[in-house]
Design a protein around this nucleic acid. Structure first.
Lengths: 153, 153
DNA sequence: GAATCTGGTTTCGTGAAGCAACCTTATTTA
DNA sequence: TAAATAAGGTTGCTTCACGAAACCAGATTC
């Protein structure tokens, strides 16, 4: 692939893609959010090749999205747990879920996310102003911090 | 790559990744949100190879994220515009921006997003219950719609 | 002490991702 | 009319991402 990297990109979205933008990383994070913690379980749940899994786990640990915890009494038993940074990917994952459920609905039910306290489903994620008022993309001003511009979309 | 596809996956996140989960697609969508509409402009702004751009634009059109509009008086001049489905990717993109700004801040300023009406910055995107109360990942119950389970994360 | 579990690493082959350069067709502008 | 621009298509090449399977080593279990 000789894939282009965006490590030093000025674009925040590109920098996010650089850390979790490949096919597997975000699915691993998702799986971790579902409660998976161990190497073999990730492997079984995702059906990912083992070397790829190793590579992705290492990179996620390196980027501090996961942390590798030694849970063996005498070593050699590990868990991969979400860090705060990793847990903060939750809105991204939820936004993706909701987008897919809206635009590419799947006949089979799949997973269900609810408020643990009340048992009610989640609200549709949306961009809001400081007061919580929903904003469409047209209501958001996109401006270069240096120059002035704000396109119509 | 012989990349694994997730077209028919039961996982909503995987299905989203299948449509916009590669390195370029989401950046193209982002660029479209910034106001770019024409092939050459995408190419110049993103620095993407032309055949890859063609391929991605085609796929995005095929998936109805963009639509190709003939704006030439006599044909052969096109614009790629976001559909409603494409515009609905806005929360995902914003969530990625905010994540990156929080965890991988960039020294240079970059773009600035504000409420066009009030000029105030956006609220941090978060998962909410039906009433709008913010929910952490621990407060969300993740259950298979068939069986019963809800892991601790 | 043999088998098994866990968490990997190594090797190898394939194909797809990516880039660059050149070509085409049509339109617009100088 | 010549040139420049727009929107690609095509080819050729390189490299790396991915997958499969084998191998490995420490700990535990039988």
């Amino acid at each position: 692939m000789a894939r282009k990297r965006f490590d030093d990109s000025n674009c925040a979205v590109a920098r996010t893609l650089n850390e979790v933008g490949d096919w597997w990383s975000l699915l691993i994070v998702l799986q971790a959010m579902y409660g998976t913690r161990r190497y073999v379980d990730f492997q079984k749940e995702l059906g990912i090749a083992r070397n790829i899994l190793s590579d992705r786990l290492d990179r996620l640990v390196e980027n501090e999205v996961l942390r590798k915890v030694d849970v063996g009494e005498h070593g050699s038993r590990f868990e991969y747990r979400l860090t705060d940074k990793g847990r903060d990917l939750f809105p991204i994952v939820i936004a993706m879920r909701q987008w897919s459920e809206k635009w590419n609905p799947c006949p089979e039910p799949g997973l269900d996310l609810r408020d643990r306290a009340t048992g009610r489903p989640l609200r549709q994620l949306c961009v809001q102003d400081a007061d919580g008022k929903p904003l469409t993309i047209r209501e958001v001003q996109i401006a270069d911090r240096n120059t002035e511009n704000s396109p119509e979309v």
